[in-house]
Amino acid sequence: MRPIDLAREHGLSAQAIRNYDEAGILPAAERSASGYRRYTPRHAQALRAFLALRGGHGHQQAAAILRAVHRGDRESAYRLLDVAHVALLDERATRTEVATALGSLSTAEPAPIAGRALTVGELARRIGVHPATLRTWEDAGILRPERDVGTGYRIYGAAAVRDAEIARQLRRGGYRLVQVAQFVESLRAAGGTEALRVFLEDWQDRLTARGRHLLAGAAQLDGYLRLLDEP
């Protein structure tokens, strides 16, 4: 087969196939007398495996898995597969934790705080972060502290405490500051419950999709390994 023959199945260009070849994603190709690459069904299955793995592992990790296979280091390939599954399992647990925490935090009317509003240090101790983190969240638009009339210092009422607790949970889930800010803003605008429902459903959908991609990639890789093991 020629590069274009492999490319056609996946809507790729012949140059993309040559790039994958040079990157070690495909096994070494033989050359014709005139110098053209010649591919076999093994190359076609290696390409299917890479493209399927890429959906769950990303480009770099998928390429690393195929390179490990091609240098005969299947143990390293299996370890890379395992790492992705462990990371997915950890994220599932984090989502459950976040859902549980946000379920009690993100109400339309934040629960009142007993006594006066909290200072920077008090809020930082309450949620287990450094005071500088709270200022970073404020700069990102996540927190909106008020100012004490007498001292001018930042103070955090019920709404700000709720937003800080939400931010802590989402940051533990690996979300970037801009994503946390967008969620908190949506929560304010939607009054709480609808934004929370959509957020958690989207997160679950992403986890499910990644799980399916990991399964599909493993299946295609298994098919490729079977071809390599044939005489």
Rank of each mutant, 00 (worst) to 15 (best):
R92N: 10
T40C: 06
L102T: 13
Y224N: 07
L227V: 07
R210D: 00
P27L: 10
S186Y: 08
Q169P: 06
Q220D: 06
W203T: 12
G152S: 06
A111C: 11
E122Y: 00
L12N: 09
I17E: 06
L123R: 02
A114L: 10
A77M: 04
R197P: 14
A140R: 02
A189C: 10
R125V: 08
G150Y: 05
H43F: 04
N19Y: 11
A28N: 15
P231T: 03
E30I: 07
Q45D: 05
R38T: 11
T136S: 05
L51W: 01
A93T: 10
R126K: 13
T193R: 15
L102G: 08
I17H: 06
E185Q: 14
G217I: 00
L80R: 03
R54M: 07
L227T: 10
R67T: 12
V129A: 03
E22N: 14
G150F: 12
Q61N: 12
H59W: 00
F183Y: 15
A77P: 01
D148E: 13
S76V: 06
G121E: 15
I142H: 00
A28T: 15
L207W: 06
A99G: 08
R8P: 05
G191W: 10
A62C: 06
F50K: 02
Y156G: 02
L177F: 12
A164M: 08
F50I: 06
R74P: 13
A46F: 00
G56L: 00
S32P: 08
G72A: 12
S34R: 11
S76K: 04
E97N: 13
L170E: 11
D5L: 07
F183I: 14
T208I: 11
D148P: 04
L80N: 01
L89T: 13
H43V: 10
T96V: 11
I155Q: 15
A218R: 04
I25A: 05
R18D: 12
D82P: 09
G217A: 08
R188I: 13
P110H: 12
L81G: 13
G150I: 09
R154T: 03
L143E: 04
A114I: 07
H213K: 06
P131L: 02
A99W: 07
E122A: 11
D5G: 08
A167R: 04
Y224R: 02
V69K: 02
A77V: 03
E109P: 01
G115T: 03
A132E: 08
G173A: 15
A117R: 11
D148Q: 04
G103H: 02
G191Q: 11
L177I: 13
A28K: 14
G35I: 09
G72I: 04
A49I: 00
G223A: 15
R168H: 12
R144Y: 14
Q60M: 11
L81Y: 07
A52N: 01
V178K: 14
G55P: 00
V120P: 03
A108W: 05
Q179P: 02
L228T: 06
V98A: 03
P145A: 09
A52L: 02
A49M: 00
E75Y: 07
G157L: 07
L89R: 04
S106T: 15
L215Q: 13
F199Q: 12
P41T: 08
R206S: 11
R38C: 10
A195G: 12
P27K: 01
R116W: 09
A164C: 10
V178N: 14
A160K: 05
Y224L: 09
G211M: 00
G211Q: 01
R168L: 12
